[in-house]
Design a protein around this nucleic acid. Structure first.
Length: 416
DNA sequence: TCTGGGGTCCTAGGACCC
DNA sequence: TCTGGGGTCCTAGGACCC
């Protein structure tokens, strides 16, 4: 118990909305909703504080948001701009600590342990960091400080908006006790209900229970919960130190139709397009996947997933498509309207697909051909290279990516 | 309310092997 | 012959996060 860590959790305030305001100052001070148009299928990605006053919050259906706040301005959003701003923030963070981990596009953990000589005590360092982010990006953030990721995360949420909160070492239990159980990361809607049913409402109620009780009732989740209530990063993701981002375990793309469909040509062309997107990202990451999964959501929202594991891993659009197509035809309740389709690749193999030599060479040529197609897409846009099946059925309904026609990021620059 | 898209982790059952 | 236990892989579903 000699070396206590100092962890910062930096969380951007209303990130997507704030970036939009940067590009269109007329939005400032107004009710703004990012995520899509008011009558669309979809949910709110981010809402301005003005919109939140009407009960609008992220993950809420857009149509609900429109009813609650009819005068709100609805925006599709600009993912590329968010990524660029996120990278700017990341560069500022690196100036404060070499141990930075982006937890998502708008939040990060910093291990600030042992930086006192350079940046002063935690609160001073946090104020400097806050000011640097503001001056470099014109964006506000909130910063939580604690001895663990968990404490830093919870305290940054309490610091919002535009604040800094330091939980002094030793005060963790006292800080957590009055909070709602829902404030603990990992406690969602269902967990909250289950806890309330037992009369557990505040984190302090949890801390008073025996670990065995929670483990017996809720298994691993319950045990981790008991630890969190005491301020420990007990088990799971929060246990890890702050460092390099972990390698991805799966790559997926999915699409929800604007209207449900039974049109098999349309369905197959969507599967083809999703397979291409997954294949492309596998190739970009130099990955091959053994398991391919189809996701199928019907009109009534019932959702099934069906997977197949290959003997040899692949990164080819055609193989991915062949598998998910087969899975679709095997499991689709014929004639039932489809709301969503998804394709996921997982179980990445470090080695390439084996097999005999000739087969290997043939495969390699195919992979090269697809990589060439990726580069063409980078230059001329996603629609310039499509495999035959992808051409049918008018799948190009709406592209969230780059709606303003900004230049895309050219990841493969410098390659021949 | 009428429910996106991209992920992670956990559980649980069955197959299969020793 | 009618029955064990552990380990690993695969599959399906679900909670949760941003």
């Amino acid at each position: 118990m000699v070396s206590l860590k100092t962890i910062f959790h930096v969380d951007m305030d209303a990130f997507f909305v704030s970036v939009e305001e940067l590009f269109d100052p007329a939005l400032r001070g107004k009710a703004v909703v990012v995520g899509g148009q008011r009558q669309e299928r979809g949910v709110v990605s981010a809402a301005s504080y003005q919109a939140r006053r009407y009960g609008v919050h992220s993950a809420m259906p857009l149509r609900t948001a429109a009813k609650l706040c009819p005068h709100a301005i609805f925006l599709d959003g600009h993912p590329q701009r968010y990524r660029e701003c996120s990278e700017k923030v990341y560069r500022v963070l690196l100036a404060f600590s070499p141990l930075v981990e982006m937890a998502s596009i708008d939040e990060a953990y910093l291990d600030m342990t042992g930086t006192e000589r350079l940046h002063g005590p935690p609160l001073r360092a946090a104020h400097q960091l806050h000011a640097r982010i503001k001056s470099e990006t014109q964006l506000n953030c909130s910063i939580g400080i604690g001895i663990s990721r968990l404490i830093a995360k919870v305290s940054s949420a309490k610091a919002k908006p535009h604040g800094i909160l330091w939980v002094i070492p030793g005060q963790e239990a006292k800080f957590l006790a009055p909070l709602d159980v829902r404030d603990l990361p990992g406690v969602g809607k269902v967990g909250e209900q289950n806890l309330r049913a037992l009369g557990i409402h505040r984190v302090g109620d949890l801390a008073g229970l025996a670990d065995g009780f929670l483990e017996e009732r809720f298994g691993k989740w319950g045990l981790a919960l008991a630890g969190k209530a005491r301020g420990a990063d007990a088990g799971g993701w929060f246990d890890r130190g702050v460092g390099r981002d972990a390698d991805a375990k799966s790559i997926s793309h999915e699409h929800t139709y604007t209207e449900d469909t039974t049109d098999i040509e349309r369905i197959e062309s969507t599967l083809m397009r999703l397979s291409e997107m997954v294949g492309r990202r596998l190739r970009e990451g130099g990955l091959r996947a053994r398991t391919l999964q189809l996701k199928l959501r019907y009109q009534d929202f019932t959702t099934i997933t069906r997977a197949h594991t290959l003997a040899d891993a692949t990164q080819l659009d055609t193989e991915i498509f062949a598998q998910v197509r087969t899975l679709f035809h095997r499991h689709w309740r014929k004639g039932t309207a489809v709301r969503l389709l998804g394709v996921e690749a997982s179980q990445f193999d470090p080695g390439s697909g084996q097999g005999d030599l000739i087969e290997g060479q043939r495969r390699q040529r195919w992979e090269q051909a697809f990589s060439a197609a990726d580069r063409v897409r980078d230059k001329f846009g996603e629609s310039s290279v499509l495999l035959a099946t992808g051409l049918k059925g008018g799948f190009r309904e709406r592209t969230h990516e780059n709606p303003a026609g900004l230049p895309g990021k050219r990841k493969r620059d410098g390659e021949n």
